[in-house]
Every structure is written in structure tokens, then in C-alpha cells.
Amino acid sequence: MSPVALLLLWELGARTGVIPANVLAAPSSVILTAWRMIASGELPWNMLVSLGRAVSGLVIGVAVGSALALTAGLSRAGETLVDPPVQMLRTLPSLALTPLFIVWFGIGETPKIALIALGTSFPIYLNLYAGIRGVEPRLVEAARSFGLGGRELIAHVILPGALPSFLLGLRFALAGSWLILVVAEQINASAGLGYLINNARDFARTDVIVVCLAVYALLGLAADAVVRALERRALAWRPAFIKS
């Protein structure tokens, strides 16, 4: 009830002039603007651009993070080679690297995708690495006693055992990719949700800003739903999922 009441109050405030339109547009005008932006194709197109950036960065980040985690998790040599530098770098907030990335990669698509890739590779690495190292030693031992070794042990025991941790990492990575996307899109973008917001800011179009914020929120929700569905499928063996 209270969200509806809040919306009504907001609408009322806007209609009576208590909330001026250049501070916050009325819900009705936000909906109208959203409709217009969808109909003109402006919103879907820019959303697709943003989504493309997030997905490309995420794919690269997940691939790099997984490769590093497998290297460090499955071999001692890999651990000494990979883990210390990654643990060092992870303390650095990815967004702090924005200026450096602009110097390196210019102001096109590359720094945006690179920032997202960097920011998502850390949660994947940390969780997958911990997951591999945290696989129940009793199960590894049992599998070894049945003659499993090397590749088979990794495929049947270690990777499935680390999968829950990987999916947790993926959830963090998705949330991170969204956050970084918002900031990265402020870098001289000529398309995307960030570009729409920047434009709207210059013209004090609070209705457009609110529409874009709502789209960010909806995309975030959708991403979470995807991971949840993935978990339900991949972790069907877990007692929590067996009942349902």
C-alpha cells in the first residue's frame, strides 16, 4: 500500500506545484515520457547499447576471472603466480582506474567495456578460487579411492563442488557491472542510458532521468532473476531447491 500512497502523494505534490517539474517530474509525466521514448525507439535503442556494454564487459570479466581462478585454484605454481598480484589489485576500486583507462584507451567504447571487465573479474576470481579450494576434502578423497584422478577429479568433483561459489561470484559480478556501467557511461558517451541521462541533465528533463533510472533498476532485477534461474537449474541437488 505505502508505495502507492507515496506515488499518489508525489503526483499530488507535482500537480499542486509543491514539487516543481525541474526538481522532480510527476509520475504521470514520467509514464508519458517513457511511453513516448519507447514509441520513438529512443529508449530501446539506448538500452540495447548499454546492455551490450554490460554484457561484453561481463563476458570478458567472467572469462578472465575464471581462467585466473582455475589457474590459481588447481595448481600450486598457479597459486603462487596468480594469487598474490590479484589479491593486491583487488583492493583498488575499479572505478578509480577510470582516468588511467581514458588515457590508455581513449573515450570510445573500449574504456567502458574494459572497466566493466576489470570490475567483474575480481568477484568471479575470488569466489571461484575460494570455491575450488573449499571443496570438501572428504569427497575428493572418496573419489580418489575410486580411482578418479587428474581430469576426472576436476570434472566430477572439484568444478561441481565450486559451482555454488562461482554463481555467488556471478551475482556479485552482475551487480558490479551495473554500477560500473552507470559511471562508465558518463565518459563522453554518444549513446546509451548514461548518454540519455547526461543529455536530460543539461535540459533539466527530470522525467527522462527518472525513466532511465527506472530502466537501470528493471535491468538489475532482470539480471538477478537470470542468476536465480541459473542457480535453480545448476544447483538442483541442493536441499533448498529439492523441495520446490
Binding site: 569427497l139 578423497e141 573419489a143 561441481p160 559451482l163 541437488w237
Partner: peptide, 9 residues
């Protein structure tokens, strides 16, 4: 403890 792999039927 039976040590069955929980992720395999």
C-alpha cells in the same frame, strides 16, 4: 559418512 557427491544423482 557415505561420501556421496551431492551434485550427482
Amino acid at each position: 559418512d557415505a561420501r556421496l557427491l551431492p551434485w550427482k544423482r
